[in-house]
Design a protein around this nucleic acid. Sequence first.
DNA 1: AATGAATGAGCGTTCATTCAT
DNA 2: TATGAATGAACGCTCATTCAT
Lengths: 218, 218, 218, 218
Amino acid sequence: MKVQSGGSVASPTLGRQRKRTRILEAAVRVFGERGYFGARMRDVAQAAGVADGTLYLYFASKEDLLTAILEEYAQAFVERARRDCQDLADPRMQLRRVLERHLLSLEQNRALAAVFQIELRHSRRFLRRIAKGQVAQYLLLLQELVARGIQEGIFRPTVDPRVAARAIFGAVDELVTAWVLAHRPASLAAQLEPLLEVLLYGLCTEQPAHAHGRRGEP
Amino acid sequence: MKVQSGGSVASPTLGRQRKRTRILEAAVRVFGERGYFGARMRDVAQAAGVADGTLYLYFASKEDLLTAILEEYAQAFVERARRDCQDLADPRMQLRRVLERHLLSLEQNRALAAVFQIELRHSRRFLRRIAKGQVAQYLLLLQELVARGIQEGIFRPTVDPRVAARAIFGAVDELVTAWVLAHRPASLAAQLEPLLEVLLYGLCTEQPAHAHGRRGEP
Amino acid sequence: MKVQSGGSVASPTLGRQRKRTRILEAAVRVFGERGYFGARMRDVAQAAGVADGTLYLYFASKEDLLTAILEEYAQAFVERARRDCQDLADPRMQLRRVLERHLLSLEQNRALAAVFQIELRHSRRFLRRIAKGQVAQYLLLLQELVARGIQEGIFRPTVDPRVAARAIFGAVDELVTAWVLAHRPASLAAQLEPLLEVLLYGLCTEQPAHAHGRRGEP
Amino acid sequence: MKVQSGGSVASPTLGRQRKRTRILEAAVRVFGERGYFGARMRDVAQAAGVADGTLYLYFASKEDLLTAILEEYAQAFVERARRDCQDLADPRMQLRRVLERHLLSLEQNRALAAVFQIELRHSRRFLRRIAKGQVAQYLLLLQELVARGIQEGIFRPTVDPRVAARAIFGAVDELVTAWVLAHRPASLAAQLEPLLEVLLYGLCTEQPAHAHGRRGEP
DNA sequence: AATGAATGAGCGTTCATTCAT
DNA sequence: TATGAATGAACGCTCATTCAT
């Protein structure tokens, strides 16, 4: 009835970390499937193969468990996105790379995507926490990326980096949410190019006058 | 012990409609302030000035009440947006007008905005309902708008109207959510132009080659 | 499955009072039998013939229910004791009457006695609440009674009324507790006279010198 | 990872006894401060500087721990009281000495007093256990003391030794409880004389007729 | 139609106790 | 002998919903 904790446990801390991860992954699965409110702590415990009380040795409350999912996964994502950018010079490529990661990483773990797109947003308090934390970091990354592009003359100077960052985030976010909700979801990554098409070059065939002017110079 | 509702009731249906509306508006206020889960039916009843049980004469359940808010307000919005478009020929102006309405109408009623951006999205089931209903209509409107723009040669033919529609929606939606969450929100409508700047002309200073080529032809 | 609330309900308030009383009496029975901690709210609800939730329409919490028992019964007791005293002139008779009531009223309702002697004392917080409330009133009554007796020359002037009051209370209280705990309890009221014998005249055959002296004066 | 308990352990039994005592003293402190129900076994373990599980190597359960406190301290007290009496001839002095010990020993260890006056009384089962054990012994001691006093003609023959013993115990007990509950407690021992004043000579200035008569005879 | 008192299912959390190491 | 991570039973309370009046 008890699961052995791996062949060789180097240190109690290691075993502890492992169990924590097991619970966290179980929570992602259960919250992803039944929703945060639909899931009972007991469901998570069973999915993780531990007793009810054990959950509370690793997480202070149901809400803390949800928060931990956010922090565990989102932080890693933002950090990785930032590293990805460093390898590339062209801000257009940077943007492509970041959004590609965004789409791919969520496409790989649909339950996690469901938690991110749905469960982490069911209350103002949670939305605020996210908005001030990881999402703020992500927005900052995008904003800097856009600002750099403008400095380098690759992006149009009339663009407002803050609004652009939000627009980019909102656009990707909406695509992911639609994908999470779809019963037979199409490929998420496949939507990267059409999205970039709009974000990079916009809808219009012609550049606005002020941009034209600049471009026209020899 | 009860006060009759006015000396002459024109029609029972009319009075009924009025009370329904009163409840609905109360629900918007209460859900907006305390959140859907934080709000008790009793709170709504008190805010509407009716007894607990009365709510159930107009709405089948708490969830139905939330759904009714969606249908009551969102439908009107989409219809209006569609009518707005008919008066304008240029798809760029149409897009501007639609998004302007979007921002303005939510800026005017912050509680309603909170319900739309937060409360209506706390479960997969609800998100699906929205996605298939009013949002689908809205996306269709945007998609048609984009497609028409392409046909008319004003929007770039390489743009995918479906992805573009979602990107547009996602971008506005994100701006509104940020505004709802902000403690001291800046003007929402003021973000229209910077947003359009990106959506219509994109980030890049140069149009992509294929668009160039086509545009360059005599 | 539902119990009609009396033949004719004059006012909803009256019915409410009745139900409150029914719950209170049920609580006395259940707490008396199983103890406060051993009793579940559900037990009380069943004993009262109401649903779990109904308890909370009348009492804010389990603890509040216990508190209500104290206030409902103890206050009435102290008030009655005070009235009893007014009819009598001799402080010796007053004391006899008060203690008689004390013993008789608890002998009549053993469950209530159990709650008073045991359940209401299981935590420092509760003991304090009692000590500052009803018991304080009772002690005051006794203290005044003793002081009056001294003034009238019937009680010895060397007695400290405060200590005497506590001693009296403690002595009776101990008798009652022993009676509550006994499996085959002897009559409680029958112990009144032997108790008074000690309290009024003490253990010693001789009065102490100073009392003697004063008494000897013409 | 563990520190051996001293270089040379005289006997394992001795070390064991020591640890048992350490746990017991910790329990008195913790129960006294937080109350029996408010205290968790972990609190006791930490206060004693041992692991949770270790408690169960010395005491079978939480309740057993409480019981052990009772037996450890109360037995010693009663035995000592009995020895104290043997040194004195006058039952009045014996009573004074016993009650003085009672008050002094509890005044010296307030946490222990709290456990005795409050924690050991929170359930009928516990009260019974006490009543049949140490308190019974104490009552017996008092009862014998009174009976002896009567035999010797020092205490009034009309006094019922059983009731008197309970009255005496109840009176002292009440004083101690009040002292434990007080936020700024006055000296407990200082209340000995006023208490004896009442217990030995009663409230009344005159001895009852039957006592008088007997005393008056040559 | 309206009321609002009553219902009762449902769940997060605690903590005494166990037992593998 | 000692540890402390793991266990899991137990329960007060809330609140959407019903229904007698």
